[in-house]
Design a protein around this nucleic acid. Structure first.
Lengths: 215, 215
DNA sequence: GCGGCCCTCCCCCGCGCGGGTGAATCAGTC
DNA sequence: GACTGATTCACCCGCGCGGGGGAGGGCCGC
């Protein structure tokens, strides 16, 4: 069975790039394209694709609202939210809107294809593994597919909160009344779950997903 | 001349702590206290203090709006915005509102006293040195006192933007077509200007001040 | 012209961090 | 009772990062 994909992005170049990547695969096909949120809701109802690749930033109707509307229809497609990561809405909100997965615009083509196939197959996934882990740790109301294997534990979330306050491992150890070694273990584990290379990237993810907020 | 200070914070304990610190100084005096934004605007007009220590988070009227209203009066006091740093509004916005300086609630008493005296003396300052540096680098419209000695240079701002995207020094060097050594120099300089201990804290400052934004 | 600032790049050094592996304790589950 | 997962702590190692000091070229203003 061919998996049909609807592309929603206000930039034609992005759509063209995604279309080229997806069109080249024998088991995938581009069902259509949409340039704004209103179009994508209409196109999803008309074309009934298996998967929607949804940009967060779009004219007329943002990707989050569009996701909610698309998923409100009977027998809705899976929605993968595409984010530029440094310039987009909180991913956590998109998760609550019911998105099945995430992609970064700078993701490698194989990652994009993998994401589409996984989501079409019924799995809920994310790129990077980071995001649902954070969203799930953020609250138990993380919506469908909240049982993700890489979810942060309570302690890891504690540590991440302190990391996101600029604390060193030694300081965190003092704060939590545990050994520095324990903190190192937690940090190492949460970095692995988040797919982050170092604590700096973990902090960025924490802000980008709304795990911690500036305001 | 005694410098009179108006304290604005919705938590009595915070006000009491500040009052104790300030009241103990012979050259400073507490002019009054306010528990919300409306009160502080009224109290500033009535008591005509030299300096207002303004919490960002307050009922009825937030600290930013209150700052604007206080400064709109004739011959206004200096306003120092007090922030908890991990739970407050963008400092950059407060700068635009005309604040003369910043304090962290967890600042040491000497820092608080120093800030009050400096601001009362006409200087514009911040704690940590970080914040105006960032705000000034953010745009040339940084309001009064924008000529701060620790302002980030253009190149340092470039580097910080990439640091705040999770890039390593080597990656930043590749992005900017310079040697890794040069990046190290810039990173070291901007850390010093920001008063940050490491790149993680620099990223946090970048988010907290609105130098980079998640949304 | 000369001082000052910015950008560029070099050296050395120490340490905190991240990766790998292993393990003990305790909770809840099957 | 066995099993899984969370939390705690230990050792090792390598490397990236941050701190120090120094240096040259370019641009601008006094």
């Amino acid at each position: 069975m061919t998996v049909t994909v609807l592309l929603a992005d206000d930039e034609r170049l992005i759509r063209a790039g995604l279309a080229a990547i997806i069109g080249a695969e024998p088991d995938l096909a581009v069902a259509g394209e949409a340039g704004d949120g209103v179009e994508v809701v209409e196109a999803a109802a008309r074309l009934r694709p298996d998967v929607v690749l949804m940009d967060v930033r779009m004219p007329r109707l943002d990707g989050l609202t569009a996701t909610r509307r698309v998923l409100a229809a009977p027998d809705p497609p899976k929605v993968i939210v595409v984010t530029t990561f440094e310039n987009d809405e909180y991913v956590y909100d998109a998760l609550k809107a019911g998105a099945s997965g995430f992609l970064l615009k700078r993701a490698r083509p194989e990652e994009i294809l993998h994401a589409v196939r996984m989501v079409a197959g019924g799995d809920t996934l994310l790129f990077p593994a980071a995001i649902r882990a954070l969203a799930a740790a953020h609250g138990p109301d993380a919506g469908p597919g909240a049982d993700w294997h890489a979810r942060l534990t309570e302690r890891e979330a504690d540590v991440l909160r302190l990391v996101a306050r600029g604390r060193s491992n030694a300081e965190i150890a003092a704060d939590l009344f545990v050994s520095p070694q324990t903190v190192k273990t937690h940090v190492g584990n949460l970095l692995a779950k988040l797919g982050a290379r170092d604590r700096t990237q973990a902090v960025i993810l924490a802000y980008e997903t709304g795990f911690v907020t500036p305001g």
